[in-house]
Write a protein that binds this DNA or RNA. Structure first.
Lengths: 264, 264
DNA sequence: GGGGAGCGTG
DNA sequence: CACGCTCCCC
């Protein structure tokens, strides 16, 4: 038996919006402690992780661990039927074949109920070990989204270079090249004027080439978090983390592209 | 070697927005005294002039005169990557094959660099003699833009009639006719309440028919100047001038349409 | 607070 | 391809 309630449907809507472009269907693992999702994208290049802790729900109950296979397209359609400030409750009985969603309007005067057929999903579970990253960038998620959008008009691939000085995003295409450097700033908390600081923690400088179309998908998580953390390590996927306040986080891993220069 | 800096990218953005619809690619002539551009539109009906004086830049250096052929679509894409209050510096070395643009955010914490491939552009240089205009209208550029937009919903062609009393813009189409008269006002400077005065200096009344779609393009320059000056003379192109404060101006010339009544 | 531009959806 | 929504700029 699963029952979980969120006071604002908008949160769940944004979460599903952020992953549904990458993943068609995914297993949601419900346990006492909360909900987890792990899914490769269709082309097996990007990995999405979602964790929502039980404390983040206004009501949470999960008698025994249960995995629900959900088509994200269908779920997204149903969530479009919820107003942003509806309360949303999801329910499933043990070995249920459907997920039940109930939306209640803020004024309690409208109650909507939807049932979503569950599916069996073969999951290629990938273990992602915790790594010691060589570089960690923290920046405004909105600025991240803006940079990705800007560079998409220049080329298909972005190079992310993290150094002690800051992080550089660069791309090139037929019309020319573009590069944006965000300087590392010591965070100044006493000055409330500091809006969108960027910080770079470096053990060793790292550089990676990534397909912008995936980053463009990741950037859809920007509405969920003020900041994004980019974790880089040589010869391993880059991790993008958006912390969802009070409830969890969403993480994307993207394998770097083989550098063309090394391709020869 | 060329180096020129503007404190506000928004100025350059607006300038390029104002000409890019008319001109796909254009030669920018850099000299010690500033930057000039002269370009016919695709259909060779409208002529665009741009002059930016060196004093208007926060930094200007041009060792020797140089002509840079620039694709305005590509340049516009790059300028979209600048925030409005970024500082923008453009650079080109002698006989360079690329134009370099550097944007620096107001907080200095973001520096973006773009390279734009230059191109060879055949230019049909037209000499436009200084003329004694029969009528000169000065009016609010915003009101000009509004009138053009309004009349576009009536017809394709506007007739501009300047008399001592004022200036009349009129159009007609299938649904009917429209006409807007702006009365000549003696400029009253002591009354600060006077918002958008129109003045008409007349030597001789003039009337011209012009294609509204071009005027609609010219009106894109309205954000650059509070006022527009319209200069009319019989049997010659109409000149629209937008003065860009402290730095120069942008002018459009448009050949009048042969009056249908005289076409018979 | 209103208008315009870019993006996603039907 | 057009409409509506959202973010950004004025």
């Amino acid at each position: 038996m699963i029952e979980a309630t969120l006071p604002q449907a908008s949160l769940l809507k944004k979460i599903i919006e952020a992953v549904k472009e990458l993943v068609d269907e995914a297993n949601f693992d419900f346990s006492e402690t909360g909900i987890r999702l792990q899914a490769m994208d269709k082309s097996h290049v990007a990995l999405s992780f979602l964790h929502l802790r039980e404390e983040g729900f206004s009501e949470y109950r999960c008698d025994r661990a249960q995995t629900l296979g959900i088509g994200l397209g269908s779920l997204s359609k149903i969530l479009k039927c919820a107003a942003n400030d509806d309360q949303v409750q999801i329910k499933a009985s043990d070995s249920a074949e459907t997920l039940e969603l109930a939306f209640e309007s803020a004024g309690k005067d409208r109650v909507s109920e939807f049932k979503l057929k569950l599916m069996d999903i073969d999951t290629d579970s990938v273990d992602v070990p915790d790594m010691d990253y060589q570089a960690t960038v923290s920046m405004s998620s909105q600025e991240f989204a803006r940079i990705v959008r800007d560079l998409l008009s220049i080329g298909d691939t972005v190079s992310i270079d993290a150094t002690k000085q800051g992080v550089r995003f660069s791309a090139s295409g037929d019309d020319g090249k573009g590069s944006i450097l965000l300087k590392h700033q010591k965070t100044v908390d006493d000055e409330k004027n500091t809006p969108a600081n960027t910080t770079v923690q470096i053990n060793e400088p790292v550089s990676h080439s990534l397909a912008l179309k995936y980053l463009s998908n990741f950037a859809k998580a920007a509405p969920l978090a003020d900041r994004v953390t980019i974790n880089l390590i040589e010869d391993a996927p880059v991790m993008f983390e958006f912390k969802i306040s009070d409830i969890g986080h969403i993480r994307f891993y993207l394998a770097p592209q083989i550098d063309e220069d090394m391709d020869v």
